[in-house]
Design a protein around this nucleic acid. Structure first.
Ligand SMILES: [Zn+2]
Ligand SMILES: [Zn+2]
Length: 1180
DNA sequence: CCTCAAGGCCAC
DNA sequence: GTGGCCTTGAGG
């Protein structure tokens, strides 16, 4: 139990000091039985017991020679019952005899630093040094500041343990040291230990058996005190085992389905990369932390101190809320000597990167992977992606001499001079000047007149004040100051930096820097609404150290040369030290410039460039990309509830993420682990429980943290399987993507709110037909008496002459109809002009029949029953003979009314709005993909079910989506069926043919309804109603071929000039395709189709003459439509028979409704059923 | 009179 | 500021 931590400690020690371990092993092959209580600690014990065999320790203690005899004496002296494994069996045997003393005598190493413990101090077994340190910290109320990630290693020799007092104190507290824990009394060592263990266990979590002896003292008073120091840096720094991160090839082989996505992103990175290196202060702008040197003040300070204080004002981001602590022993060992990992991001470009430097036989090797742009779920880090197509790695020569003679051949990763930006400028961080590109004629490199200024930033505080700052930036006086101080007007020969749109800072990364003169904050990146490129950090002289006022500055600190070690010799580690001619040694740690390109109008830039005489400025593309990315960032910002810390929200699709929670500091540290070992370490803050498990590459593991707060921390894992973070921390953090459902909901509600206004009441009430959900065929078939009278009246006075076509009809509506109508959200959501009256179908047909020919037995006809002159009359209305205007308009009216009634309308939203929705949904989907690591729709159902079984999570809402899709599809079929039944003549067809026609045409009709919502560029489809789809989702629901052809064909369809009348007619024609499979009476269908084709022809030629070639193109489109239909199959989760049965249900219901309805109902289905004796289920 | 741990001292 | 070593004083 408790040995978990001990093992972790010892393994860490072993890793960091292999020689030591070897010595131990050789001298003491067998661990003494005395340590069976805690066998894993034997390596630690050897730290002080086997001094002569440990060169490192010798070196350590050489400073204090007196210690050696003492150590030797203590460890060898049997009278003190010091039993140490290396001292041989004799001592072990002796220890065995006196068990009580055996347990009490060999003190474990210092819990804090691993050194020689001298007893219990403040409740924890520590050395004298740590004891004194803690005592002083308490006594003098010391406030420390961690300049790294608050995970500094404090185990080691003096220089190590003193490198970060903050972390040391933190560890003391973590280990349970408490000032109040004064003498616990006189115990034997074993008893005391046992006692303490028990007390702590009871204190913390009775259920937690893992709360070992090292369990933290809750020590709340101290914790809270010390936490005022918790504003430490969030610099991302981790070490990992060598190369563990970068097995992308392996990953890709596992994620081939996602490869094209990755590749496209990679391509994007390639573009962003330049830009990134232009605008970022230097190079990759990595965050870095050199834990060895220990004083790289790249701290990102939180001005407000304890970030927990912000919780009331700022909600943390999705992954930062359930802060927990992972005990030191259980942390990922990050102190490996041959590996160093850092990370950074470019907020502007929206990419982050992780890099590592690994010491190999051939020297240091630099690897870098970059992440996707932020998403809503991963606001500042997306998935890890290869940076430049080189399999995610970038080889950089290190430890190479600078080639001063030929800089272009300097293969060092030079951090003094940035790579050229798009203007050909390089940033020289020594002179704080821009360097013009070296002239081809060999002239000396010239400097740009614009100097650098120190940059400052804050990750946190200004987030909540983002908008305020944004406004502030544009205050005239502020602009002036900025201009004076920062803005150097480019001369005619200066590449243009002046882009007119105001740019905003990402507040997390930009902080106002006090202006010396006014005390007003300065935003270097924003200058009078002009973009000035980035401002790098500043140098401190070697005698300087960061002051409190410097804490918000981006530090570039000088380190004494002698403090560097071989890590620092790697030029690719930000924070590494370089010695320059002038003996200035600099360490540069950069933060990306957070300039946001918002609302940049590229055309304006074009015009500006043109006016300035600059053509083809490559920066244009950068800006275009940046604009895009900025939008995404803003989108993310809009959708997250808090400013995530730098280190948060690193969700990788390539490698699992380890969330190391720091509850007391509210800092969540993420570390990457190998994709091969998707272990997730979820810590149980005060309970010292670590649940780490390896997970199947196919199935995610869910680690649920049951710490006292019922926080559920799920983390996942495999690159193949999405992760779901269902953090239910006390603060209601919403971290999911807006679901499709939500989207649809807001979509609808927005539309409703838009349309249902007082003035639009008519618009909502003048629905052609009451949108009753009953299966009544139509309102017209059962009108109220007054309505009937009204219709009859109109009929008598020239019904059709008055009404014309629907869109030509005046807005006066029968009040009875209006009052009968309910608001139909489906219709409301469309801006299609709804016909302002509906056509009484029966009234029309009666009229038409009076003035038209009869005796068309061989032709399609429809039966009309109507109340006329107090009598119920029936009449057959034939089709196909003449196109009387009345007939035409009447039938068109009927069809169009049904078309609207059953919401088969196409999507003709405002294109801008439509695009916005498309983009929004695409972002949501991409965010999901990035979080999940792949397009989750490609997870097989079996795998998905397994995931669901194991996690209980509907990770991509598939289950929900299925129900949505099911509902939507069902409704679509219902509406389609009802629409078909409203088509005059359709109900006279053979019922089996009706079903076949409906079923056979549904895909094409679906397409006709949907194509206007297709954005082939974005591969997004917004449905007029219901769920949006991405192409891949559509492929999942239908088929890939279908999705392909839909997105391929939609653009051409969008070129057609259509109105709802044409659409209604066209759909009718499509519906009545006589070549559907297994039609019983294809000739009748063909006849009916011909009739409607004639109507369509008539309409396009005479009523809609604006587009003469429309009919031809419609026919052509219809043919292509068949292609769409050809590639379709039953939607997911549907079967053909089930669908047909549903259709038949509607058909039947219509008939039954007619029968059971009042006498005005159409008996068409009954008649048909009687004549054909169709039985229920005959289609199956 | 012992052990133990807290605190003090002071060279570094 | 650190930490080895000392003193102190409460237990046992
Ligand atoms: Zn220690
Ligand atoms: Zn630290």
């Amino acid at each position: 139990m408790a040995d978990l931590s001990g093992e972790r400690v010892s393994s860490t020690a072993a890793v960091s000091s292999p020689t030591r371990k070897a010595a131990v092993d050789s001298s003491c092959p067998l661990p003494p039985p005395d340590y069976s209580l805690n066998p894993t600690k034997s390596p630690d014990l050897t730290d002080y017991s086997v001094k002569p065999t440990k060169p490192p320790d010798l070196r350590d203690y050489s400073v204090n020679p007196t210690k050696s005899p003492d150590l030797a004496n203590r460890s060898i002296n049997p009278t003190k019952s010091e039993t140490c494994p290396p001292n041989g069996q004799k001592k072990s045997a002796e220890g065995r005899k006196k068990k009580s003393t055996v347990y009490s005598s060999p003190l474990p190493p210092c819990k804090i630093c691993g050194g020689k413990a001298s007893g219990l101090h403040y409740g924890v077994n520590t050395c004298e040094a740590c004891k004194g340190f803690f005592r002083r910290a308490i006594k003098y109320q010391r406030k420390y500041q961690c300049f790294r990630k608050q995970r500094c290693d404090v185990v080691g020799e003096r220089s190590v343990r003193t490198s970060c007092p903050f972390c040391r104190l933190q560890k003391c507290l973590d280990m349970g040291m408490a000032h109040s824990a004064i003498k616990t009394g006189r115990y034997t060592h074993a008893k005391r230990t046992e006692n303490i263990m028990e007390v702590k266990r009871l204190e913390i979590n009775p259920n937690n058996l893992n709360g070992g002896e090292h369990a933290q003292d809750t020590g709340s008073s101290f914790s809270s005190n010390s936490n005022s120091n918790s504003c430490g840096s969030c610099i991302m720094t981790f070490n990992s085992s060598k190369n563990s991160l970068y097995d992308e090839d392996r990953f890709f082989s596992d994620c081939s389905t996602n490869k094209h996505v990755i590749e496209s992103v990679m391509h994007k990175f390639a573009e962003c990369r330049e830009q990134e290196e232009v605008f970022a202060s230097q190079g990759d702008g990595d965050f870095c932390d050199n834990h060895v040197s220990g004083h790289i003040n790249s701290s990102i300070l939180h001005p407000g101190g304890d970030v927990r204080n912000l919780s009331g004002r700022i909600k943390r981001g999705p992954y930062t809320d359930d802060a927990k602590i992972i005990p030191y022993e259980k942390k990922i060992p990050y102190a490996e000597e041959n590996s160093h990992i850092g990370g950074g991001f470019n907020a502007k470009a929206g990419v982050g990167s992780y890099w590592s430097n690994t010491l190999t036989d051939s020297g240091w090797t630099f690897h870098q992977v970059e992440t996707t742009k932020p998403s809503m779920e991963n606001p500042f880090f997306g998935s890890l992606k290869p940076s430049d197509g080189t399999a995610g790695t970038k080889e950089v020569a290190v430890n190479q001499p600078r080639n001063s003679n030929n800089p272009s051949n300097d293969i060092r990763h030079d951090r003094y001079i940035s790579q050229q930006n798009d203007h050909g400028l390089s940033a020289d961080f020594r002179t704080h000047q821009w360097k013009l590109p070296q002239q081809s004629d060999g002239n000396q490199q010239q400097s740009h007149p614009m100097s650098f200024q120190p940059r400052s930033y804050t990750p946190y505080e200004s987030f909540s004040q983002f908008h305020m700052h944004s406004q502030f930036q544009h205050h005239p006086s502020q602009q002036k100051q900025q201009q004076q101080q920062y803005h150097h007007q480019p001369n005619d020969h200066t590449p243009c930096y002046n882009y007119p749109k105001p740019l905003h800072l990402i507040p997390q990364f930009a902080v106002p820097e006090p202006n010396n003169s006014s005390g007003m904050p300065i935003y270097p990146e924003v200058n009078n609404g002009k973009f000035l490129s980035y401002q790098p950090g500043k140098f401190l002289s070697s005698s300087e150290s960061l002051t409190s006022t410097d804490q918000t500055l981006l530090p570039i600190k000088i380190e004494p040369l002698d403090s560097r070690d071989k890590f620092e010799n790697s030029p690719d580690i930000p924070g590494s030290i370089y010695q320059e001619e002038d003996n200035v040694e600099g360490v540069c740690i950069s933060i990306f410039s957070p300039t946001l390109f918002q609302d940049v109008n590229v055309s304006e830039i074009d015009a500006l460039e043109e006016a300035a005489g600059f053509e083809n400025i490559p920066c244009k593309s950068c800006i275009q990309n940046a604009v895009k990315d900025s939008n995404d960032i803003l989108f993310a910002l809009d959708n997250i509830t808090a400013a995530p810390s730098f280190s948060s929200s690193s969700v990788s699709s390539l490698v699992p993420v380890i969330y190391i929670d720091k509850s007391q500091t509210d800092v969540v540290e993420d570390t990457l682990v190998s994709p091969l070992v998707p272990a997730i370490y979820i810590d149980k803050s005060q309970t010292d429980v670590v649940e780490d498990t390896l997970v199947s590459p196919l199935v995610p593991a869910i680690y649920i943290d049951k710490s006292q707060t019922d926080v559920v921390e799920d983390t996942l894992v495999s690159p193949l399987v999405p992760v779901i973070y269902t953090d239910k921390s006390q603060t209601d953090v919403v971290e999911e993507v807006e679901s499709c459902d939500l989207f649809s909901t807001s979509f609808i509600s927005n539309s409703t709110s838009l349309r249902v206004s007082p003035t639009s009441a008519v618009g909502t009430s003048n629905l052609p037909i009451s949108p009753s959900r009953s299966l009544s065929p139509s309102v017209a078939s059962s009108p109220s008496p007054s309505l009937l009278a009204s219709v009859t009246q109109k009929h008598k006075s020239g019904f059709f002459e008055e009404k014309k076509l629907p869109h030509a009809i005046p807005s006066s509506v029968s009040p009875q109809i209006s009052s009968n109508s309910k608001i139909n959200p489906l219709l409301i959501s469309h801006e299609i002009q709804v016909p302002q009256i509906y056509y009484d179908r029966n009234a029309f047909l009666l009229t038409a029949s009076e003035s038209d020919v009869e005796d068309q037995d061989s032709k399609a006809s429809t039966s009309v029953t109507c109340l006329k002159n107090g009598q119920i009359k029936s009449k057959e209305v034939p089709f196909g003979s003449s196109l009387d205007d009345n007939l035409f308009q009447g039938i068109v009216g009927i069809i169009e009314a049904a078309y609207h009634k059953y919401t088969l309308t196409m999507f003709d939203k405002n294109p801008d709005l439509l695009y916005k929705w498309q983009l929004t949904y695409l972002k949501q989907h991409k965010a999901r993909c990035e979080t999940f690591g792949l397009q989750t729709e490609f997870i097989t159902d079996d795998d998905y079910e397994e995931i669901f079984k194991r996690t209980g999570l509907d990770i991509d809402n598939r289950r929900e989506q299925i129900s949505i899709i099911h509902r939507g599809t069902t409704k679509f079929f219902q509406d389609l069926s009802r629409f078909a039944l409203e088509v005059p003549g359709f109900d006279k067809l053979h019922p089996g043919d009706m079903v076949e026609l409906i079923y056979g045409s549904y895909v094409e009709l679906w397409f006709l309804r949907s194509f206007s919502g297709v954005n082939s560029d974005l591969s997004v489809l917004i449905m007029p109603m219901g769920k949006p789809y991405t192409k891949s989702e559509l492929a999942w629901v239908m088929s890939k071929e279908f999705a392909d052809i839909v997105f391929e064909q939609a653009p051409s369809f969008k070129l057609l000039t259509l109105n709802s009348t044409i659409m209604a007619l066209w759909k009718t024609v499509v519906l009545l395709a006589s070549d559907r499979g297994s039609l019983k009476e294809p000739s009748r269908v063909c006849q009916l189709q011909q009739f409607y084709l004639d109507l369509l022809k008539h309409y396009t030629r005479h009523v809609w003459p604006g587009d003469p070639g429309l009919l031809t193109r419609l026919v052509d489109a219809t043919i292509r439509l068949r292609d769409v239909g050809y590639h379709s199959k039953a939607p997911r989760s549907f079967t053909t028979t089930a669908l047909k049965r549903d259709i038949l249900e509607v058909v039947k219901a219509r008939g039954l409704d007619s029968v059971s309805g009042d006498t005005l109902s159409e008996p068409s289905y009954v008649q048909l059923e009687n004549s054909h004796n169709i039985k229920d289920g005959s289609l199956e």
